[in-house]
């Protein structure tokens, strides 16, 4: 069974190194640009290509929840400075596992329901609610 030694070819090793290096660079760049002190304050909820909610998270006094209907039902919880998917009846519930979104660039996605929540800085959105 010496063939086992030749299973890995040069191209394979090259591919692994390139992909891992690219992924780490992208992650490092993301963490650097995210700037943890700058909290995301505008939450954008999209269903398909339509923005269904745009919420200024800094103006939330009392936490509340709302529902998103679609192929599946999502319950979204909003509180001061953060937002999360509280409940979902989709199969994998990845959006729930994403937890609280707090910083600019954080996103939670529910592919089966074509729903996405992403956070932006309040200055990034021209038509913010504070207008």
């Amino acid at each position: 069974m010496n063939q086992g030694m030749n299973i890995l070819k040069k191209g394979d090793i090259f591919l692994v190194i390139i992909v891992i290096a690219a992924a780490l660079t992208a992650l490092a760049f993301y963490n650097w640009s995210r700037d943890k002190h700058k909290e995301g304050s505008s939450a954008i909820v999209k269903q398909g290509d339509v923005i269904v909610h745009r919420i200024n998270l800094n103006e939330i006094k009392e936490p509340y929840t709302f529902e998103i209907e679609g192929d599946y039902r999502l319950v979204v919880e909003v509180s001061n400075g953060s937002i999360r998917v509280l409940e979902a009846d989709c199969p994998d519930r990845l959006c729930v596992k994403s937890g609280w979104l707090r910083y600019k660039g954080d996103i939670a996605v529910c592919l089966p329901n074509k729903t996405m929540i992403k956070l932006e800085g309040v200055n990034d959105s021209v038509d913010g609610i504070s207008y």
């Binding site: 030749n6 299973i7 070819k9 040069k10 394979d12 591919l15």
Partner: peptide
């Protein structure tokens, strides 16, 4: 160039 591992990746 690529073995089955690389192709699979």
């Amino acid at each position: 160039i690529f073995g089955l591992i690389g192709i699979s990746i």
